[in-house]
């Protein structure tokens, strides 16, 4: 097990390098002059342009630029963004908010998604099953910004059940509605995946054996079938965490949350390369660790999969 973890940690290094390089290349391939508009409504002086290009190594070939940048990141220096603020400080603040939002969305997925999937799976073809299938379809088929805007209007503005926007403190209560909106699409995926896998596993020999050796149906389903059905679901939730962190742009926009998504989006628009690459690098590292944990869970859930 320990060996496996060390090997996985070593495998992360090329992934981090590959991902950040792609992002770095894309950000610095963005069209337009990086110094445009930095000096108000006039051309930037030659000396400023020269200093700027020197500071961000813009005259070097791309791989060398990238190597120099990563050299700084490894030492914990994410650089400063266009406003002269340390990117590291910005990220710490933003990740605290988006991280909580994503965790709450995952909680919504697990609680609602898995229970709906189990209910539908063990009552296949009955009313509950059809109800779950139809309602997940409805959720999947409506774009997230329509769901967000409509829920914000009805639950927030009309009924006043939830705060309409999120203040800079971002309390748990304020983040509840955004978390439901953010997790809504994945809840549907989780419910359908759980149902599909449970239905398949319920027909498996080991479930029949479990029932014929006298276990209650509850135990046979809960302990044997469900455990094996959870592998694809956990895989999905694991990668969804990364998607939620980065994909919260729309939800953050609708509810005015000061999170990572908005930070990156603004960075892309104003060509603040340092901010974008820094934020994405942090996202990727978090995501990779979450997935390592998911892979370790495989072995726990299904003893046939071993890590030795």
């Amino acid at each position: 097990m320990g060996k496996y973890i060390v090997r996985r940690l070593l495998q992360m290094i090329p992934v981090i390098i590959g991902t950040t390089f792609i992002i770095y290349a894309m950000v610095f391939a963005l069209p337009g002059d990086p110094t445009a508009g930095k000096c108000g409504e006039r051309q930037c002086p030659e000396s400023f342009v020269a200093e700027y290009r020197e500071k961000y190594n813009l005259d070097d070939p791309l791989p060398i630029q990238y190597a120099k940048y990563m050299g700084q990141v490894v030492q914990g220096d994410f650089g400063t963004n266009q406003y002269g603020v340390e990117v590291r400080e910005d990220l710490a603040k933003r990740f605290a908010v988006t991280g909580r939002l994503a965790l709450m969305a995952i909680a919504v997925e697990i609680v609602i998604g898995i229970s709906a999937g189990i209910l539908a799976g063990i009552r296949k073809g009955r009313f509950v099953d059809n109800l779950v299938l139809v309602s997940t379809l409805v959720v999947i088929s409506i774009p997230i910004f329509v769901i967000g805007a409509v829920l914000q209007y009805f639950l927030g503005v009309r009924l006043g059940l939830f705060p309409v926007t999120v203040s800079s403190e971002a309390t748990t209560y304020e983040l509840l509605l955004p978390a439901i909106v953010l997790g809504s699409l994945s809840v549907a995926y989780v419910a359908r995946l759980t149902r599909t896998n449970l239905v398949e596993n319920l027909r498996a020999d080991y479930v029949r054996t479990a029932i014929s050796k006298g276990l209650s149906k509850r135990r046979a389903v809960g302990l044997h079938a469900l455990r094996n059905s959870m592998i694809p679901v956990i895989t999905f939730i694991g990668f969804d965490f990364g998607a939620l962190l980065g994909g919260a742009i729309v939800t953050e926009g609708i509810f005015n949350i000061q999170g990572v998504g908005g930070y990156i989006y603004r960075g892309i628009q104003v060509r603040d390369g340092v901010a974008v690459v820094g934020a994405v690098t942090a996202l990727v590292i978090i995501y990779l660790f979450v997935n390592l944990i998911v892979d370790l869970l495989y072995g726990v859930l299904d003893p046939r999969i071993s890590h030795d």
């Binding site: 992002i23 998607a243 962190l245 980065g246 729309v250 996202l283 990727v284």
Partner: peptide, 8 residues
């Protein structure tokens, strides 16, 4: 490729 969020 997977580590890059789709929307971003």
């Amino acid at each position: 490729f997977f580590a890059i969020p789709l929307l971003l």
